[in-house]
Amino acid sequence: MRLLMSGSKSGGHLPQLWVGGALTAIVLITALVAGFWTPYPADQQSIIDRLQGPSMAHWLGTDLYGRDILSRIMGGAQTALWVGMAAIGVGLAGGLPLGLAAAMNRNGLIDTAIARGSDLIFAFPALLTAVLIAAIHGPGMINVIVAVGIFNIAVFARVVRGAALSIMARPFLQAAIAIGRPWPSIALVHLLPNIAGVVAVQATVQFAAAILAEAALSYLGLGIKPPDPSWGKMLADAQTLLYLSPMQAILPGLAIVWTVLGLNLLGDGLRDALDPKLRSLRAV
């Protein structure tokens, strides 16, 4: 998996970290601000004011229902971050214990079962899984989180297993194992702190992937339920308005690119900063 790494090495990682951090911080702040203030309530309609261009009253104009686009993009940041965080949470909650168990049971039954299980999950494109879940349960944030989260469990299980195995090969851990320290203690005291960096890097990348997945599902009408703001849903609404109001199709896309770019750069920068030798699986 080394082939999947990227990023320039010769002192080029710091800019990545800073640019990525700054882009991400702005999204984070926007989402936090949106939590208690937006120029207008994100779902406040005014049919007569619909599809306006930018003005003093509406800095980025209004949408099909006369809602303030800036407010909706801000709200969309909140939605995106919630989905991203929850999908990471699901992935970690499942993937961390499974990955550790697999590492400690190397080549045993548990390890094989987990490996085959994640192979199976990877075989179903995440988008497809999400489409099916949405068709069964109807769309909604929970379903997006579950769909992306299941995929993340497999991703984290693999990453954690790999990282844990490489740590376990180190002398200090070999010693701990040799003196017969119990496994839970080894896992908590030695393994977890040492793999935290790799997991953090992977989490950043999966965060970006979750945001892309949410946008794609909402675009297909299978993601966030109306009237909650979602960038993907905004793009879906924009498609028939391309002739009438092309702005509608541009702004939410820029918001997605901004956020995902920020997180990806942050992930690359973090990885290089934490340990240039540790390479993680890139979600492709």
Binding site: Q44, Y65, G221, P226, P227
Partner: peptide, 21 residues
């Protein structure tokens, strides 16, 4: 549905919109 939900919200209902096929 988006518009009806907003109009009902204005008189005090909390309408959950569920898109279905």
């Amino acid at each position: 549905g988006e518009i009806v939900a907003a109009q009902l919200k204005a008189v005090g209902f909390d309408v959950e919109q569920i898109p279905v096929d």
